[in-house]
């Protein structure tokens, strides 16, 4: 079949592009599964990450921005967690939704006020331009690097949650917060750290995607729906579910563009619909946490 190499190319490209979806969805999933907060402001933190990188890059270069910007945004996250998020861990999820919805609008408007509405130029750094050719396939080095960072972020988060005492406390806290408290462990600083990590991951995604998706105030609103689709397909609260879902979404979208380009974005919603029909809790969701 003559068309096969083209289809294969889209599948492989879809796997590379899944880094894009993985980066934006990972932090969102983390905050939800551990804090029970559906963070609608996730896209806004993603945008902040890109804007901070825009300011930092002239001084410290792209590598400096890649490290410093997520740390600064996570610091903002810590303040917001202490003053706002922490009040809603155990309350009706809709309150957290309202809070983060408002926060998303406030941050987007703040960006408009500080940096203006026009998109800002942000280039792929010099040292990582160019393309790798494998047979007849083409891969920009930058996208491969993005995939590597996404894999590292997933691995790091997994180790942190599964192989450290910090991770054990977090897991215990999710299962039974009262028992953790009785044992004399304060959950508050743990939750702060988890939210900061999730928000930092959003900012990391913002820095990495800035050269591809552009830096403009609505960039957060642009990706938030796709991020939710990935989390929902993977199953709310499931770590590996997010990873598998990101790859699925990347590949399905690539194939859709090959066969029915106009359905590129609709395809990921169709995928979500299909998954939810067959498995209402998502691919790997153990249970529909806190919403049941």
């Amino acid at each position: 079949m003559e068309e096969l190499p083209f289809v294969l190319e889209q599948v492989v490209n879809g796997v590379v592009v899944s880094a894009y979806y993985l980066l934006i969805a990972l932090g969102l999933s983390l905050i939800f599964s551990l804090g029970g907060i559906v963070n609608l402001a996730h896209g806004a933190f993603y945008a902040l990450g890109a804007y901070f990188a825009f300011e930092i890059q002239p001084y410290l270069g792209f590598a400096g921005a890649l490290v410093l910007s997520p740390i600064l945004v996570a610091a903002i996250g810590i303040v917001l967690e202490r003053t706002m998020f922490s009040r809603f861990y155990r309350s009706d999820p809709i309150l957290g939704l309202l809070l983060t919805f408002g926060l998303a609008m406030v941050i987007e408007q703040a960006i408009r006020i500080v940096w203006g509405a026009a998109p800002l130029p942000f280039q792929i750094p010099d040292f990582i331009r160019g393309q790798l050719f494998v047979g007849d396939m083409i891969f920009p080095y930058y996208r491969l690097a993005m995939l590597a960072v996404a894999v590292l972020a997933v691995a790091g988060t997994w180790v942190l949650l599964n192989k450290t005492s910090f991770g054990r406390v977090v897991k215990a806290g999710v299962q039974n917060p009262d028992m953790v408290a009785v044992l004399g462990i304060s959950l508050a600083p743990i939750m702060t750290a988890v939210v900061a990590l999730g928000i930092g991951l959003a900012a990391l995604a913002g820095v990495l995607l800035a050269p591809i998706s552009g830096v403009h105030p609505a960039m957060g609103a642009e990706i938030i729906t796709a991020a939710f689709v990935v989390v929902v397909i993977g199953g709310l609260g499931s770590f590996w579910g997010v990873v598998i879902a990101a790859v699925l979404v990347g590949v399905v979208r690539g194939l859709a563009i090959h066969f029915v380009p106009a359905a590129a974005e609709a395809s990921i919603y169709l995928l979500m619909l299909l998954v939810l029909l067959l498995r209402p809790r998502g691919l790997f969701g153990e249970r529909i946490m806190r919403f049941e």
Partner: peptide, 10 residues
């Protein structure tokens, strides 16, 4: 759409 890579491959 924000990612154009599949279109660029075409």
């Amino acid at each position: 759409s924000t990612d154009f890579s599949p279109f660029i491959l075409k």
